[in-house]
């Protein structure tokens, strides 16, 4: 199991939804797509890299070969995949505290959805319907979603500064350099590895320590 890759956590949740109300959920998502303002709450949760909702109709599970038995399900299903920074509790709680009504709007047609408030039944609901990831890959385990966003700003401002000061006097250079640092205060910062950057990184470093004789091989 590997729900963690660096600073990202992979959440998978699968929940049943009555086949005759699944279209309502699809409609809600469609409206959210047409009116991006409805996603403003999600944008405030800056700890999210990427998230998605997928609704599988009860007769829409992939059927790719004649020898494969067709599914005969009573419910349709909603899959939720998220990539976020921080711990499970921080993430689930931030949903409850920041966008409870938005969350309820997306899940309200799911069978026995507990509502996002109060917290304990909601935790139980997510925990019960969550599936663990076997292998999780992150192209930038050292970075958070905010790091990725701010890196883009740092790069752009640095290039602007470089071209604007190429022919400037020393005094002007110093002044603009200070302005640059002040502008970037919110975006600069060292990125350090977390204690366990990924399960694979953990395994590699454990093996390395084992080779260096720091671990007792018979016990690991």
């Amino acid at each position: 199991m590997s729900n963690i890759a660096g600073k990202a956590y992979a959440m998978n949740v699968i929940t049943p939804i009555r086949w005759y109300t699944a279209w309502l959920n699809k409609l809600i998502f469609w409206v959210a797509l047409q009116r991006p303002a409805t996603l403003k709450g999600l944008i405030t949760l800056s700890l999210i890299h990427y998230a998605r909702w997928v609704i599988i109709g009860r007769d829409q599970f992939p059927h790719v070969h004649p020898s494969q038995p067709r599914e005969t399900l009573k419910y349709s299903y909603m899959l939720f995949f998220s990539n976020f920074n921080g711990s499970w509790d921080q993430y689930v709680d931030s949903f409850t505290f920041a966008i409870p009504s938005g969350l309820d709007m997306f899940w309200k047609w799911n069978v026995r959805y507990s509502k996002s408030v109060s917290l304990t039944p909601f935790h139980k609901y997510i925990r019960y319907n969550q599936l663990d990831t076997l292998h999780y890959y992150n192209a930038y385990p050292l970075a958070t979603s905010n790091d990725v966003k701010s890196a883009r700003i740092v790069k752009a401002k640095l290039l602007d500064f470089d071209s604007a000061t190429r022919d400037a006097s020393d005094d002007d250079f110093a002044k603009q350099y200070r302005t640059l640092l002040r502008d970037l205060q919110h975006d600069l910062g060292d990125m350090y590895p977390t204690p366990i950057v990924s399960m694979s990184a953990y395994q590699v470093e454990r093996r390395q320590r084992w080779h260096e004789g720091q671990l007792d091989g018979s016990k690991h």
Partner: peptide, 12 residues
Amino acid sequence: ALPASLFFVGSN
């Protein structure tokens, strides 16, 4: 593959 009903990009 299955189509996503909603895809949210919080990064870039």
